[in-house]
Every structure is written in structure tokens, then in C-alpha cells.
Design a protein around this nucleic acid. Structure first.
Lengths: 188, 188
DNA sequence: GTCTATACGTGGATAGAC
DNA sequence: GTCTATCCACGTATAGAC
């Protein structure tokens, strides 16, 4: 286990814990045991308790997603490079498909109503970013929307499938398939 | 609210509750309030408590999935009919994409280690069923595997996307898109 | 078959010493 | 900044009356 020596390490560890147990399934006992900090120490860092910890984790995830997945789409590179960089970002963000619970954790249970608006906005922003750059390639609006949805759906579905089956190779296959779909539909 | 007058009604109601709150987020108080039965009455029907209730729900879901999604693939109908019936079953099972948490509930938190083998087997069985009937259409093994994965991934991804965005129309679009993909790749 | 009452553990959270 | 000790609310589960 990586020893926790900074606030960043702590949030990283919290992310793993919430990811494994879910928000409601994560107790302060679990948090304490897995971080190596006593309950009171956790409250020193997060006076708001469990909810504040979840918030810190959510914000970290959002920053990572923006940096790794969204920002490549907003660069001045050419279209194929943007897509390639986004897919590499996806692979990093989801750790080759092995870290698929990042959103599920906050989309289910007590946290559902707290985060669903933010999750919705993130998903729609991702979609709009794709629509925009696909239209720039000369594709009409309706087809751009369908293609953008197809890309996101394939990625999210691949995560679900990989986790369900334990076959994480399928995640890489699916990402390659996404690239192929884009190539066939846009660059040809 | 539908009044509970039978064991089946009770399991249906439990399904809704677990779906809304997640397994760990569902307390006996919530179960009691939402079913209209006292705690002790719930224990009368399910001596094993919450875990036994979750088991009953899981078994119900498995039966429904088998009946609606898997069994159409094992009929003597022609290929397009099998696929069409499966997609209709998907629509019923997931209530037009609005009931997307059925598996997530058991794939996260305390129930994860209890059900993950069964979820895995169900996913692989679904995939194998698709591979089989696609190969019967004259597609070679590798392409049949890729196509089968693509079909399942698109469906599961569409559920995630529809829930995240709240745009349930996208689920129907995605199902139509699946049908289109199959048509283009197999029937042409 | 459903209820009220109750037992007992674990949950989240805080006070105060070091 | 971390700990021990402690609080109270809520969790699951059961006993026994109706």
C-alpha cells in the first residue's frame, strides 16, 4: 500500500475506498482502517465528515476527467490527433478499464441527488465538445449528434462490460473499435 | 402506489426500493415505510433479513432477463426476428432505458462479492448466445465475437448515458443504431 | 400475518489530551 | 496533526402479543 504523506495521497486513497465500497457502503471504520488515520484525524482534514470527503473525491475526479478527456478536444491539433489524445486520456482516467466505478459511486444511493446535476452537465459537455469538432469536419448536425452519442456510449458500455465479465482486454478492443468507427464515418 | 397484495407484489416493490437507494443505502426503515409493512413483518417473509430480500430481487431480475432478453435468442425464428425480439425484450426489461440500475445495485458495495460471479456468467452467456447465432449467419468466429461485444456494449452504454443525461430518447436512438449496425454487418 | 416493544451493535460525529 | 474516549442516532434483528 502506498503510504499517505500528503493531502493529495489522502484524496487518492479515499477515491479507491469509495470506489471499492460505494458511498453508502463506506463507513468511517473502513475509511480509518484503509487510510491508517483515526476517525478524529479524518475529521481534522474534512470537518464536514464523510460527505466532505466524497466531495473532495468528486472534485478530484472532475479535474482529472477535464484534464485527460475533455481538454484534448479543445486544442488546435487536427481532428485525428484530438480523438487519439482523448482515447489515450480515457485509458489513463479509467486505468485500462479497471477503474470503471468512478461515476457509478456517485450516481447511486445517498449521493445520487447531490451529484446528478453535475454528472449530467459533464456528460452533456463531453457530447457537445464531440459534436462541435465533428461538425468542423463537415458532418451535418444530426449525424454529428448521433456519432458523438455513439462514441460516449461505446466507451461507457465497454467499461460496464469489462467490469461485469472481468475481461479487461475487451476494453482495449472497444476503444480501437471506437477509433475505427470514427475513421469510417468521418475521415473517409 | 400499487397496493401490495401478494408475494410477487412485495418483491416488485423491493426491486424498486433497492434500485432507488442502492443495497447499502436501503435501511429496514426505508423498506418498512415504502412497503407499508412493519420491520417484523418483513422478517416474517424474509427470515434472512435484508440479504434475503436482495436475493429474492436478484432472482426475480435474473428470471426476467432470461425470459425477455436471452430466450428470444434460443428460438427457431430467423436471425432478424431473434434480434428484433431481443431488442424488444431489452426495452421491456429496462423500461425504455428508465430502469438502468438493475445490475449496478448488485455490482457495487456490500453485495458486489456476493453477486459478481453470477453477473459475470450472465454477461458471458448473453455474449455466447449472440456469437452463436451470428456465426450461424456465416460470420467468422473473431468478427462474431467483436460484433457480439459491440451489441452488448452499445446497450449497456446507452443505459449509462440515458441515466446520466436524463435523455431517455437517446436510449431508443441507440437501440435503433444497434439494429442498424447488425443489419449493415451481417445481413448485407 | 402483522403489530409494538426492545435488545444490541455500529453508524457518524465531537471533546480534549498529547 | 493524531490519538483515546465518549456521545447519541440509527442500523439490524428478535420476542411476544394480537
Amino acid at each position: 500500500m502506498v503510504k499517505i504523506v500528503s493531502y493529495k495521497d489522502l484524496v487518492d486513497k479515499l477515491t479507491d475506498i469509495f470506489c471499492e465500497y460505494g458511498y453508502d457502503g463506506t463507513s468511517l471504520t473502513i475509511l480509518s482502517q484503509n487510510t491508517g488515520l483515526g476517525r478524529a484525524s479524518l475529521y481534522y482534514h474534512f470537518p464536514g465528515g464523510k460527505e466532505e470527503m466524497a466531495n473532495a473525491v468528486y472534485e478530484k475526479i472532475t479535474r482529472d476527467f477535464t484534464k485527460l478527456v475533455l481538454s484534448p478536444l479543445a486544442t488546435d491539433h487536427n481532428f485525428p490527433t484530438k480523438i487519439k489524445n482523448m482515447l489515450e486520456g480515457i485509458n489513463l482516467f479509467y486505468n485500462n478499464g479497471q477503474r470503471s466505478c468512478l461515476l457509478d459511486v456517485f450516481a447511486i444511493g445517498s449521493t445520487k441527488n447531490i451529484f446528478n446535476t453535475q454528472i449530467k452537465n459533464a456528460a452533456l459537455y463531453w457530447k457537445d465538445s464531440l459534436v462541435k469538432i465533428i461538425k468542423d469536419e463537415g458532418i451535418d448536425n444530426n449525424r454529428a449528434i448521433l456519432l458523438s452519442e455513439e462514441i460516449i456510449i461505446s466507451i461507457e458500455g465497454a467499461l460496464v462490460f469489462a467490469r461485469a465479465t472481468g475481461d479487461f482486454e475487451s476494453f482495449n478492443r472497444a476503444l480501437e473499435n471506437v477509433l475505427l468507427t470514427i475513421t469510417k464515418n468521418i475521415l473517409d
